[in-house]
Amino acid sequence: MDFSLLLGLGRFVLATTLLLLLTIPTAFVVIQLELKVIALMQLRLGPNRVGPRGLFQSTIHGFKVLAKEDTVPDQADRATFTLAPWMVYMAAAMSMLVIPFAPGFVAADFNIGVVYFFAILGLSVVGLLVAGWSSYNKYSLLGGLRSAAQMVSYEIPLTLSVVGVVLLTGSLSFSQIIAHQLAHGWNVWWQLLGFPIFFIASTAEINRAPFDLVEADSEIVAGPFTEYSGMRFGFFFFAEYVALFIMSAILVTLFFGGYLAPWPFPAQLGGFIGILYGLLWFFAKTYFFIFVAIWMRTTLPRIRVDQLMGVAWKVLLPLSLINLFLTAIAVVAFKL
């Protein structure tokens, strides 16, 4: 038995377990951020009773749903009803594997990381659809169908805008993409069209406002989650925020240099200090984009389902094709 293979396997298992465990605190932090930021934008105080300045409110919410009764509707399809939250949550959590948090600080550095990411992310639509179908509830069904239509439509401009980055950097590995940005500057400067497309499409892909039609409170009670209670609802709830974190992280990695500082990375920083320095920049940028998403949620009303489709197919798709075309020409012409 090759010892290095065993070591690699052990490292992979360890890192995966660690990351999966880390998703829960990540969700707590993002939820807490959302509770507090929305409250302050609405001229409220927000949670301030649990822990110092109410910092543990989201944790309390999380443990509360754990202790709730778990109901299954009488005529629901029990097997798929139980499976759906896991599919959604795993789809969100598994894609965390390929995110490079800091130099060398990545669970699995695939050479096809980008492909893996989008493949895994696409799974969540199956989970939502299954949840909507199996609940035996019309609101759930409508929500599930909405999610299918929305996420399948928006995956196309989303992926096409990433192809521009891939052409530019010549690699499907996230660490290679970051390395390229270290040499040539952040991708956002070379992808001025690709970045907004990716931003809009990713917001729609993770069902955040103003594209939160899937669980539109005022229309279809809670969409696919209507019949879920207790921890199963908790998984959907967490998955939404984990997905928000991951999308912001991927956005940062693809367009804003990941863990790179805005100025040239000091080469002498290595080892532990380097990791900390990278983590600092990575989280700062990621949470900035999470903040932007929360800001949008506070400000914007929801768009309608036909407008949603119109934006995807009539605006974003042509624009992303143009972006791809221009990038390809530029890559060939300037030998970037």
Binding site: R44, G46, P47, R49, H61, A222, T226, Y228, S229
Partner: peptide, 13 residues
């Protein structure tokens, strides 16, 4: 919301 009572849930579940 100060007491953690804010997210008015739309679904009774």
């Amino acid at each position: 919301d100060r007491f953690g009572m804010f997210p008015f849930r739309a679904s009774p579940r």
